[in-house]
Design a protein around this nucleic acid. Structure first.
Length: 773
DNA sequence: CAGTGAGCGAGCTTCCGCTTGACTT
């Protein structure tokens, strides 16, 4: 007999709590949800008030049995799952599965894992909030209906094994739309003017920028012309105080963003490292949307700040969450023991821990105080002004430990101290430059900036950000890639104060632009699926869909709406639309007509084929069979031009004859190759299949033949198909398209044919490897 | 290792949100 059984969601949490409570308490974990909708079919009876069919998940059978046994023996069972919608549902499912007298079960909640908080919770038990449970059931059922009705539609109309859902489809949409926005962006050039000035007799330089930007090179030229015989004057000096405040403590989303920017971690990597830190008891729970710190955390942080930096660095702050739909069942992510500035562990763990430590400490520190100075410089022959701005740090405050990064990669020049100046003092210029710049489109998403956007829209939860990002990449809707940029030429106009008589200097400079590092790009399939869903299911694809159903879930939680009724209102029209689309819509291949082949006049189109994106020349019902060619890596249906398509049809290409047989070049699955006598010879990086010569192909054939010859250690006259070869992993025997390992006891170069045959016979048939989930 | 693009059909795929190990190479 045990006195009390306490059930929480996470085993790490169970371990800590067990330490706080006495011997009369056994603390166990449910490992999250214990039941879910049946996986076969829908798992929902749509004709009977959407009655869900719940089953104990396979991986939870063991734990459920254990909890059942313990619960039977206990006098009281305390269900202490999180205080949010999912937590309440977990509590209800547990109650159902444990199948106990209701009087034996008590529902408790606590927000801090301290002895006091837990004992207080135990003094104030309540019963399970059925309305909140119903809100969760509505959420679960809606997601299942959307996912399990839209996905099969895609299998039929686009490609098997695809998926769609309330969250993932909108995440893909963000990326598809951003890509189109970037492709459609019309970059405009403009001129930015900056100058270097000095007070006669002094040698300190004052850098200043013109607030006006010029759109045409002529305007910039005219302005510099005016500057050349202008007088410059310090028009005004303005000083004003400024301050910077620290960012809130980490949530899952902000941790993922900062770990990506500062440490270069992927979203999944951040979560895996954080999980290890959590399990070692070093940080609090890492899946949270709360920016709140416990009283204990704030007081230990205060101590740490006072002793390390001094009283004037301390400023206790309460942060409020801005995220839509935040449920705040946990604390913010922080070190468990704030006095530990560093930890032992792997390099990744140390770095992430230090980031969390700094962010937590900084959040309770004073503002940084600055003095900002603007010097306004007038130009006698123009009404424009140059402005020099500087910034001096008066008090560093939280900046002593932590500076938050931003996504904007616009290099902001470090503003520093300005040289001393007097109002109305005359200035001379050392040089004035007009530099050509270009307007740029919104940046492509990184994994972390996509999470940030999803959080803003209220789509997804802390526990699903990382898995969702993985799903859309696994389905190949989206690909994370580094792409090289392009080069462009910019014009720089200069006048020099040392030589006021000479003409305006003009030089051209090359600059790189548009390169992307680890950014998310939509694939052809991603775009096609997005357009298909957008065309037929606008409501679900709307960025506000989640926010609006969340409002209805809140109504259910408040007991104002019946959950099955709410689902019914949604499902009626939705299901009809699914049926209609299944019946009437054509298969979606993303087909685009590019134009006609100038040589034959046949139409050329691009679309998704059985093996991926391809171009087609001619129609299927023509007398002559149409020609096909796959798109190359990096090309996409959306952006392929007729010219590029024609290039694709130039292969395979015949180079001529060698040893009485034809040599051809083409591009295969593994890149460009030359083919001769049914043997393949890979082209090298420097070879272009469109221009490579017969001579070069023959050279490659020669090289490979020598290599092949060197591979052969032994061959036998009596058995031409049996060879002893030198491979990547050492010598081996090749026979009948199978490879055999040579025992260590034998010297490969001395093997006789008989010995080889013996080895082959003794080698057992390898069972063909089967793919398991 | 190496261009494939027909059609039929069985049997499979799929959602979101809680939580961590456990299959093998």
């Amino acid at each position: 007999m045990i006195e009390n059984l306490v059930i929480v969601e996470s085993p790490a949490k169970a371990k800590t709590i067990e330490r706080f409570l006495g011997k009369e308490f056994v603390v166990k974990s449910s490992f999250g949800h214990v039941r879910d909708l049946a996986k076969k079919n829908l798992g929902i009876d749509v004709n009977n008030e959407f009655k869900p069919e719940y089953i104990v998940s396979v991986d939870k059978k063991k734990i459920v049995k254990e909890l059942k046994d313990l619960a039977k023996k206990a006098t009281t069972v305390w269900i202490a799952s999180d205080e949010d919608r999912e937590g309440e549902a977990i509590a209800w499912h547990l109650q159902e599965v444990l199948n106990l007298d209701e009087k034996k079960i008590k529902r408790i909640v606590f927000h801090e894992i301290t002895k006091d908080a837990i004992l207080k919770a135990i003094e104030n038990p309540r019963s399970i909030d059925t309305n909140l449970v119903n809100a969760q059931q509505a959420r679960r059922v809606l997601d299942r209906l959307v996912g399990f009705e839209l996905s099969p539609l895609l299998w039929k109309k686009v490609k098997p094994s695809l998926s769609a859902g309330r969250v993932q489809s909108v995440a893909v949409k963000l990326i598809v739309e951003r890509e189109r926005e970037i492709k459609a962006f019309d970059s405009k050039s403009f001129y930015k003017v900056s100058g270097q000035f000095f007070t006669p007799g002094e040698n300190q330089l004052l850098k200043a920028e013109l607030s006006k930007k010029f759109n045409a090179v002529e305007e910039a030229e005219q302005f510099l012309e005016k500057c050349r015989d202008s007088e410059f004057l310090v028009n005004s000096i303005e000083k004003k105080p400024g301050k910077k405040s620290p960012a809130a403590p980490f949530t899952t989303s902000t941790l993922q963003q900062e770990a990506s920017r500062k440490l270069g971690f992927s979203v999944a990597q951040t979560m895996a490292v954080a999980q290890r830190l959590y399990e070692s008891g070093l940080i609090t729970y890492m899946r949270t949307d709360s920016v709140n710190l416990s009283g204990l955390a704030i007081s230990t942080a205060s101590e740490e700040i006072k002793s390390s930096f001094g009283d004037n660095y301390l400023k206790i702050r309460k942060y409020k969450t801005k995220a839509k739909g935040a449920q705040e069942a946990h604390e913010a992510i922080r070190p468990t023991y704030i006095s530990n500035r560093t930890i032992d562990g792997k390099s990744q763990e140390k770095r992430l821990y230090e980031l969390i430590w700094k962010r937590t400490i900084a959040s309770q520190m004073s503002d940084a105080l600055l003095e900002r100075t603007n010097i306004n410089i007038s130009i006698s022959k123009s009404s424009e002004h140059f402005i020099a701005s500087g910034e001096v740090l008066i008090f560093d405050g939280f900046l002593k430990v932590y500076i938050e990064s931003t996504d904007d990669d616009i290099e902001e020049e470090a503003k520093g101290l300005l040289p001393p100046m007097k109002e109305n003092a005359p200035l001379q210029y050392k040089s004035i430059e007009a530099t050509e710049r270009f307007t740029s489109p919104s940046a492509r998403y990184t994994e972390a900036s996509l999470v940030k956007k999803m959080e803003e829209l209220g789509i997804g939860r802390p526990s699903t950000y990382a898995p969702t990002i993985s799903t859309i990449q696994n389905r190949e809707y989206v690909i994370k890639e580094t792409r090289e940029g392009l080069q462009r030429e910019i014009t720089i106009l200069t006048i020099s104060g040392d030589n006021t008589d000479s003409a305006i200097g003009k030089k051209l400079k090359k600059e790189n632009f548009g390169s992307e590092k680890s950014k998310l790009f939509p694939t052809d399939i991603g775009s096609i699926v997005n357009d298909f869903l957008q065309q037929h299911f606008v409501d679900i694809m709307n960025y506000n869909f989640t926010a609006s159903v969340e409002k209805e879930f809140d109504e259910i939680a408040a007991g104002k709406t019946d959950w099955a009724k709410m689902i019914g209102t949604f499902y009626g029209p939705f299901h009809k639309k699914v049926d209609d689309t299944m019946e009437t819509s054509e298969k979606s291949k993303g087909e685009k007509i590019l134009g006609d082949d100038p040589a034959t006049g046949k139409p050329i189109s691009v679309k998704i084929g059985r093996f991926g994106p391809m171009v087609q020349m001619g129609e299927a019902d023509d007398e002559e069979k149409p020609r096909f060619a796959s798109l190359l890596k990096g090309q996409s249906i959306e952006t392929l031009t007729l010219e590029q398509a024609l290039d694709l049809f130039k292969l395979p290409r015949s180079l001529g004859q060698y040893e009485d047989l034809e040599v051809t070049v083409a591009i295969g699955r593994f890149g460009p190759y030359a083919k001769h006598n049914n043997k393949f010879y890979s082209l090298q990086k420097e070879d272009d299949p469109h221009t490579v010569t017969l001579e070069r192909a023959i050279e490659l054939i020669g090289i490979k033949r020598v290599e092949e010859k060197n591979r052969i250690i032994l061959e036998y006259k009596d058995e031409p198909g049996l060879l002893v070869l030198n491979g990547k992993y050492g010598p081996y025997i090749a026979f009948n398209k199978k490879n055999y390992k040579i025992p260590k006891s034998k010297t490969p170069a001395e093997l006789t044919l008989e010995e080889c045959k013996e080895i082959i016979e003794k080698t057992p048939d390898k069972p063909s490897r089967k793919r398991k989930k």
